Simulated scan of single mutants.
Amino acid sequence: MAPNVPVIDIREVTRTYGEDPPALADVTLSVRAGEAVAVLGPSGSGKSTLLNLIAGLDRPSTGSVTVDGLRVDALSEAGSARYRRTRIGMVFQFFNLLDDLTVTDNVLLPAQLAGLSRGEARTRAAGLLESLRIDRHADAYPGRLSGGERQRVAVARALMNRPALLLADEPTGALDTASGDDVRALLADLNAAGQTIVLVTHDLALARSCATRTVELVDGRIVRDSGHVAPAATR
Score class of each variant (00 low, 15 high):
Asn4Asp: 15
Val5Gln: 14
Val13Ile: 11
Thr14Arg: 03
Gly18Asn: 08
Gly18Trp: 04
Gly18Asp: 11
Ala23Gly: 12
Leu24Pro: 02
Leu24Arg: 01
Thr28Ser: 15
Thr28Phe: 09
Leu29Gln: 04
Ser30Lys: 13
Ser30Tyr: 02
Val31Ala: 05
Glu35His: 05
Ala38Gly: 10
Val39Trp: 00
Val39Pro: 00
Val39Ala: 00
Ser45Trp: 01
Ser45Val: 09
Ser48Met: 02
Ser48Arg: 02
Leu57Ser: 03
Leu57Asn: 01
Pro60Glu: 10
Thr62Asn: 11
Val65Ala: 03
Thr66Cys: 13
Thr66Ile: 15
Val67Ala: 06
Val67Met: 01
Gly69Phe: 05
Leu70Pro: 00
Leu70Cys: 13
Arg71Met: 05
Glu77Ala: 13
Gly79His: 08
Ala81Val: 12
Thr102Leu: 06
Thr104Glu: 15
Asp105Phe: 08
Ala114Cys: 10
Leu116Phe: 09
Ser117His: 14
Glu120Cys: 04
Arg124Thr: 15
Gly127Gln: 11
Leu128Thr: 02
Leu129Ile: 12
Leu129Val: 12
Ser131Gln: 14
Leu132Asn: 07
Arg133Phe: 05
Ile134Leu: 02
Arg136Lys: 14
Ala138Met: 15
Ala140Leu: 11
Pro142Lys: 00
Arg144Ala: 15
Leu145Glu: 10
Leu145Phe: 10
Gly148His: 04
Gly148Ala: 09
Glu149Trp: 02
Arg150Thr: 00
Arg152Asn: 01
Arg152Ser: 00
Arg152His: 01
Ala156Met: 06
Arg157Thr: 07
Ala158Val: 09
Arg162Thr: 14
Pro163Met: 04
Ala164Ser: 15
Ala164Val: 09
Leu166Ser: 04
Thr172Ala: 06
Gly173Ile: 07
Ala174Cys: 09
Leu175Arg: 03
Asp176Glu: 09
Asp176Gly: 14
Thr177Ala: 14
Ser179Val: 10
Val183Thr: 05
Asp189Cys: 10
Ala192Thr: 15
Thr196Asn: 04
Val198Ala: 02
Leu199His: 11
Asp203His: 09
Asp203Leu: 11
Asp203Tyr: 10
Asp203Val: 08
Leu206Gln: 07
Arg208Cys: 05
Cys210Pro: 09
Cys210Ala: 15
Thr212Ser: 15
Thr214Asn: 07
Leu217Ile: 12
Val218Lys: 12
Val218Ser: 13
Gly220Trp: 01
Arg224Trp: 10
Asp225Pro: 03
Ser226Gln: 05
Ser226Ala: 13
Val229Met: 10
Pro231Cys: 06
Pro231Ala: 01
Thr234Glu: 14
Thr234Cys: 10
